[in-house]
């Protein structure tokens, strides 16, 4: 347990020193500020475009549009940012061989993996909270009227999905070699899952649904009970990714 806490501290310090923490926070801060603004200004942007007499009627934006924009940016820029920032966390250390010393001194390999996961989830949660706080402030100010359904659960779904992405990165990093191996393999895995997400009936069993269902939840078109299976499957998948990566990592030659 002591090793675990020490290693988490080391991870967080590394995130700060390599500027990765600040990069991630900047991305989330920008998403939080930009999304409601974009939603609010969409009609003006369209009307200021001169399209040779073509008039596009954009309905007056609502709170719902602001949150839709927020989730769209989070699932694109946000997840890309998370992939880039955490993609190298294990791969880099394996490629550089910096873990050999610590492991030789007796720190169990599973402790290394689990504390890396915990540190990444911690940083992601902090960044996400930052994005939510800024977005909420801007949205309340720009759109004083109205509300949306299931906001908290919708945010939770995306949080859980990214936690799954991080566990996927760790698993990929233990499998694929090289300092970009983990990043590339997990990106490929995500793309495959996105494509599987297009199969209509299988959506309930695919974690990707957690990152695509958000606006439907806000509209009230989906309810919490529709997603119980997806949430449970994602939790099981996170645990299996972690267990599998520990098993592979224990056997891996460094």
């Amino acid at each position: 347990m002591r090793g675990f806490m020490v290693f988490i501290k080391k991870e967080l310090l590394e995130q700060v020193r390599t500027y990765r923490l600040w990069i991630l926070f900047a991305v989330f801060l920008v998403i939080g500020m930009m999304s409601p603004l974009m939603a609010k200004l969409m009609p003006e942007i369209f009307s200021s475009l001169d399209m040779e007499g073509l008039v596009i009627q954009v309905p007056e934006p609502t709170v719902y549009d602001a949150y839709a924009q927020f989730f769209k940016n989070l699932t694109q820029m946000g997840i890309l940012g998370v992939l880039l920032v955490f993609g190298g966390t294990l791969s880099n250390e394996l490629a550089r061989g910096t873990l050999v010393n610590i492991l030789a001194k007796g720190l169990p390999r599973r402790t290394v993996l689990l504390s890396k996961y915990a540190a990444a989830v911690l940083v992601w949660t902090a960044g996400y909270a930052l994005a939510i706080a800024t977005d909420y402030g801007y949205t309340v100010y720009l759109f004083p009227n109205g509300g949306v359904a299931n906001l908290f659960f919708s945010l939770f779904c995306l949080w859980l999905f990214v936690c799954f992405v991080i566990s996927l990165i760790l698993l990929s990093s233990t499998i694929a070699p090289g300092s970009f191996g983990g990043l590339i393999l997990s990106a490929v895995a995500l793309v495959v899952m996105l494509m599987l997400g297009m199969v209509p009936k299988a959506g309930r069993y695919n974690p990707v649904t957690l990152a695509s269902v958000n606006t439907a939840l806000l509209e009230g078109a989906k309810s919490v009970s529709d997603l119980t299976i997806t949430v449970s499957i994602t939790v099981v998948l996170i645990l299996s990714c972690l267990i599998a990566s520990i098993l592979i990592f224990e056997k891996k030659k460094l």
Partner: peptide
């Protein structure tokens, strides 16, 4: 704009 520095710090910078 935003993308360049992010790419630099995540995949570009050396040891």
């Amino acid at each position: 704009g935003y993308v360049g520095p992010i790419l630099y710090f995540t995949v570009g910078r050396g040891e």
